[in-house]
Design a protein around this nucleic acid. Structure first.
Lengths: 109, 109
DNA sequence: AAAGGCTATGTTGATATGCAACATAGCCAG
DNA sequence: CTGGCTATGTTGCATATCAACATAGCCTTT
């Protein structure tokens, strides 16, 4: 399992990246991240839902309800323009940190 | 400045990597990380010292005092064999997460 | 029609953690 | 003797994760 600190660092960039282009709903995001990471990341509703509400308060995502046949209604989230800028900032930060860590790891081997 | 969550995720791998091979002391680690990151990461003593004590309790590092001319004494830390294994585990985790995130970022552009 | 399981969204309380601020102290320069 | 730099350390506040709990619609099995 991925350490908590590292998992925490991935939540924001990963959710923003997943929402870019196609809206998704909370339950779906949890499933997709679990599958994408092959079980290494497993966010609970107690983490993801408040986090999504936070993104919405920040204006990075907006939500809309959608009713579905034979299933409970879903609350979809999609990126706002501010969210796209935030995603780009997350991407840049990640790459910057990676560029710093990778050589350290290489030197340590 | 790097976000708190991401900064937090770097602390453990970065300190372990820095200590691999050559012992360093706390104040020096803070300075080196600040310089390495060009000011993007700036750990305080309130973060680093307790963290180093934790690593020592885990048996990942061991410490020894060294007196210096014209300066306060320094407490050096060096990696134990367990620390080297922990470093390798951190490296593997980081690479795994990076391999997951990088394509997501690419798709989002 | 009752029970169990899956989908789906949400809150609460306990626990852990980073960090600003504070505390101590040796050394050197002006 | 004051201020600044080096150096190690602790305390208390604020924040964030997550297990657990709560609600509810739909479907299948008994």
């Amino acid at each position: 399992m991925i350490s908590r600190a590292l998992a925490t660092a991935t939540l924001r960039p990963m959710v923003l990246a997943l929402l870019d282009g196609r809206p998704e709903y909370g339950y779906q995001i949890i499933s997709r991240i679990r599958k994408l990471s092959e079980g290494q990341l497993d966010w609970t509703t107690g983490t993801l839902y408040p986090f999504l509400h936070g993104l919405e308060n920040e204006g990075l995502v907006e939500s809309f309800w959608q009713s579905v046949d034979n299933a409970p209604r879903r609350k979809y989230y999609r990126l706002t323009p501010a969210g796209e800028r935030a995603l780009e900032a997350e991407r840049a930060q990640w790459m910057e940190v990676h560029a710093m860590l990778a050589p350290l790891f290489a030197a340590a081997r």
